[in-house]
């Protein structure tokens, strides 16, 4: 993956996560998943999982390249 594409992915991921965080389009729900997990909490936990995957990408691809260029390694 080229540097431009990596940066495009990073920006796209960041904006996507912000959009999913400020989720004004979602209707309130009082249902449970697995009989005990409120929908709202389940949604946030999935969001954190996506954020974590995003961070793995940043920490594994973007950050090391930037550190090498900036003489930080």
């Amino acid at each position: 993956m080229g540097r431009r594409l990596q940066h495009a992915c990073a920006w796209l991921g960041f904006v996507g996560l912000l959009f999913l965080h400020v989720d004004a389009w979602r209707a309130p729900s009082d249902t449970f998943r697995f009989g005990w997990l409120p929908d709202e909490l389940g949604y946030r936990l999935v969001w954190v999982l996506l954020a974590w995957l995003y961070l793995l990408f940043v920490c594994g691809v973007i950050w090391p390249r930037e550190s090498r260029r900036g003489g930080r390694e």
Binding site: E40, R44, W47, V48, A51, L55
Partner: peptide
């Protein structure tokens, strides 16, 4: 949780 923890995790 969403108000605080989720966005802090990122």
């Amino acid at each position: 949780f969403g108000l605080n923890a989720a966005i802090v995790a990122l």
